[in-house]
Design a protein around this nucleic acid. Sequence first.
RNA 1: GCGAGCGUGGCGGAACUGGUAGACGCACUGGAUUUAGAUUCCAGCGGGGUGACCCGUGGGGGUUCGAGUCCCCCCGCUCGCACCA
Length: 855
Amino acid sequence: MRYDPSAIEPKWQEQWDNARAFATPTSLADLSGKPKFYVLDMFPYPSGAGLHVGHPEGYTATDVVARLKRMLGFAVLHPMGWDAFGLPAERAAVREGIHPAIITKRNTDNFRRQIKRLGFSYDWDREIDTSSKEYYRWTQWIFLQLHKKGLAYLAEVPVNWCPAQGTVLANEEVKDGKYVETGDPVERRTMKQWMLKIPLYAQRLLDDLDGLDWPDGVKEMQRNWIGRSEGAEIDFAVVVDAGASRPTFRVFTTRPDTLFGATYCVLAPEHALVDAITTPVQRAAVEAYVTAAKQKTDLARTDLAKDKTGVFTGSYALNPATGEQIPVWVADYVLATYGTGAIMAVPGHDERDHAFAKAMGLPIVPVVAPAGGGALPTPIEDAAFADDGVSVNSGFLNGLATEQAKARMLDHVESAGWGSRRVQYKLRDWLFSRQRYWGEPFPVLHTDDGEIVAVEEAALPVELPPVDEFKPTGDGRPPLGRASDDWQVVTLADGRKARRELNTMPQWAGSCWYYLRCSDTATTEKAWDSALENYWMPVDLYVGGVEHAVLHLLYARFWHKVLFDCGLVATKEPFQKLFNQGMILAYSYQDAKGRYWGHDDVVEKDGKPVLKATGEPLKSQIEKMSKSKLNVVNPDDVIADYGADALRLYELFMGPLEQVKPWQMAGVEGVSRFLARAWRLVVDEETGALNKKVTEAPSSSEPALQKQLHKTIKKVREDTEALRFNTAISQMMTFVNDATTAATLPRETLQLFARVLSPYASHLAEELWARLGGQGLCCQQPWPAHDDALCADDTITLGVQVNGKRRDEIAVPAAAPDDQVQQIALASPLVQKFMEGKPPKKVIVVKGRLVNIVV
RNA sequence: GCGAGCGUGGCGGAACUGGUAGACGCACUGGAUUUAGAUUCCAGCGGGGUGACCCGUGGGGGUUCGAGUCCCCCCGCUCGCACCA
């Protein structure tokens, strides 16, 4: 009777279901007294393609942790759900003419089936679908809280319009002028849109990162995205003919110490003052430049980053420090969206200004010298000196180090009335509306006279209306514009007519708070129960891909802080510990013509991949899994061949969770072999009865194995808690190897091992536990305690070095004092040979490690 | 360009705060069991000599009794950001 996962896995999944083994108590009374552990996966977007083996990597990790924590006596919250609103379902809906809700249901059903087959210990009672009206009702409700606090507003703003998607995008979704998800080009357009004032929370979002147990890289990315910089805003007066008013513009600079070196100013093409200060002579040129800049896509603007362009306005401004008249230019290297949209240019000490000055023949004045007093590394005409140093040519700043010069100038700027200190953030208002159907409708109404009225909380949810098609209307309104007037037109309490908002929320909205709803999915009266939220929050471990380092995690933190300010949550931060799993790659195979071949068409020959049919040699490489490269590995197939336990184990055995690593089927075979060996420890394959080696004697009757068992109990727990699953598994393999060669197998030892195996190969562990006569479910047993005395060896082997080179190995009692260890080491013939009769100058004994004899 | 990280056998990877490099697994080789294959079990497996010797953690230097681990320089790869004043 061989190890047959297909026979045992569905059986135990059913038993777990029947016993409701993983249902977390919903009432606080059943929870209190227990320490809590909230372990959460980033909810997947249920795509039509189904799961690939990359998905279960993080899910397996969290499941192992959840199962271990339960055995350790924690109340564990371990939910799963679907981040189910999103563009792909809507595009499929347009293509197939089917409602996106139906497509989404199809996809979530498939995802759920695939995930369930892996035997994860989710509490399925708490499953969440962010696109269900029971859920998005509260997403809308949270939006109303933001709106109430004045954090949401409607504005005519330049937006990122993506023609291919037919919708606007948030800044965070655009990189190099392209939509990060699809690479479709993005252009600037001015539209009336919902915005959220996330910059008001910039400082707190920055400060509170410090207390979080997150990967440094992710914290750094968030810091960069928030982009705090300190400096000054300084006013520059434009020089005009006598009698005219004196317009001023304000610049932002982080280097106020270089004000004496500002030899020109630049306004962004979109700057409001451009038109006013352009002189008649320059008007044609400036207008042409501004028009051209407007027409350029963001992509074109960034592409041309190297070649600076610009045009002189004809006007001059006064440098407040020098009193000199400096020219004012218009150039698109100055961003309208950052700072004030205008800069003072210091070509001597800023690379961008330097490049522009060189291109336009503008003067370059050095005002900072290297700190040591030496010459500039390169002449100021050839390169800007952007480092800190000592101020020169700068009047009252001369001789001051950059730090002091900055402070001094800031004081002066403020006392002279030139401007003021200022902290600037890159983080900008979050563009929060989309011109799509498949999202949360905004719970707001527009009256004919332009007033915005929030929908009553009691009237939520504002449900998605039926529409004939999911495309925008002919006159360019969003798909909701196709809804009937019954939906679109609402009569207010005062009798006025109002129309519903036609935009919907972006996909991020739903994922901003699912972790809160999971703490209490039962209530229908409110978004969550405060007492339960208090008990469960924060999330103790949140696992997902790095791709959400900025977007999802920043948005969720923002909402959470707003909810905190509203007194609706008790924690400042939602996710205490974050862990990013590394992407799983796969081998792909190409023939000489570059055509891809799937795994099934390829065989290994002399260690080289060849085409099965023709023997043609193929090129192989490790790439991201993708349909077009025919290298997607489907968990269903792996489970069919090796079972869920083998898949789970291999996901974690491959290497450290955070690492990017290639999928290798032979590796699955390896862990599957390990599981079969564990099976044979318990089951006699000939008869199906218990292994004849199993005895009723206590564990101590097989002392070496008992020691290995206790080491395994200890290491598996420690490594699992530290998320080092690969080494935990290798320790279990070592135990099974030892057990395989042991003369007898005490039942007690095997029962304890079944419990250790349980978080990882959960189905097999149940089967072994039952066959060994264990009572109840294995996964509900307490985690075994290890005996430290049994984890230590009586005798240990030490390396002995002579002059740092390893020469021999000695066995000593673990408790032996240093001088005894030293004597044994010096007595070794090999050691004596390498000492060449010289007396030892120094002997270093490192406890439990080695002895080094220096001669 | 800037920022972060990483380079260890044929492959995935071990090595806790500097302390016996290569755990565990894959692949490979030999042997046993088997009618044969699969399975299973045992043994070997960094390189070179193939005698108890030398060399080895991307390359070069340094600190140390001792360096994969710490410091400096260089090479290569990955990720993130990219005119943020």
